[in-house]
């Protein structure tokens, strides 16, 4: 695949879930002919109501799930041409995540959670890098605490540190403030955009918060399985 292929894109992507108790006509169309292209370094928000398929689309863009139809491109590679092994290899080098429910491993300390992607990559200075990012997110003193000893905001800070420590060029964030109160959510977003700017990461942010979406360079709206680009107001 050459660099002429898009950096991050969807071409006629559909996702259909079969209804086991009905005929084909009653199948559920979560995504219908979705098309978009995202350039490297852009920040893009995908907005939409709950259940509109935002997270499903995010999962497909990151190669976590496969579409029923269409083509998806990630880091100039056609995801639909890759098997699970290939998609995993791509993720290892190009993708980071921030989840709504943090997804920290409860048996690992904050520092070890940050070290995890670095260890998966085989980094030799995982501890030093993880300590640096823990310091970046203001939790230098909490490195040896376990997730259940941290507040929700602190857990999300650890998740952000983990995402940036991996030094991947693309960051997918799924409702990063969804489980946080307004003030903590605000602080987290500040931190996220600050680090994103520093690292010049391509950011794909899924949210139902239009205010938060406004902070991104582009906004895509998902409704009834259809994706449309919102223009600046």
């Amino acid at each position: 695949m050459s660099l002429s292929t898009p950096f991050l894109a969807a071409q006629n992507v559909s996702q259909i879930v079969a209804n086991p108790q009905a005929t084909q006509a009653n199948d559920l169309h979560i995504l219908q002919d979705v098309n978009f292209t995202i350039e490297a370094g852009q920040s893009v928000a995908i907005v939409g109501a709950s259940g509109s398929g935002k997270t499903t689309l995010l999962g497909m863009m990151a190669g976590l799930d496969s579409p029923s139809h269409g083509q998806l491109f990630l880091a100039h590679k056609d995801l639909t041409q890759l098997d699970e092994e290939g998609r995993a290899e791509l993720r290892k080098h190009h993708v980071s995540f921030i989840f709504q429910n943090f997804q920290l491993l409860p048996s690992l300390t904050a520092l070890e959670n940050i070290m995890l992607p670095l260890e998966v990559k085989g980094s030799s200075d995982a501890t030093a890098l993880a300590e640096k990012y823990l310091d970046h997110v203001g939790l230098a003193q909490r490195g040896h605490h376990y997730p259940n000893q941290l507040s929700g905001g602190e857990q999300q800070r650890v998740a952000i540190a983990r995402a940036f420590a991996a030094q991947a060029p693309i960051l997918f964030a799924d409702e990063p403030t969804g489980n946080l109160d307004t003030e903590t959510g605000h602080n987290i977003i500040e931190l996220l955009f600050e680090l994103n700017q520093q690292h010049q990461t391509t950011l794909v942010l899924v949210t139902h918060d239009l205010q938060l979406a406004q902070r991104c360079q582009r906004r895509l709206s998902l409704s009834a399985g259809q994706l449309t680009e919102l223009t600046n107001v």
Binding site: L64, E84, E85, A88, V95, L105, L116, V120
Partner: peptide
């Protein structure tokens, strides 16, 4: 959940 996360971080099924 750990496995799903490790897969997100790029670990292959074989690995």
């Amino acid at each position: 959940k750990h496995v799903a996360l490790l897969k997100c971080l790029g670990l292959k099924p074989k690995q």
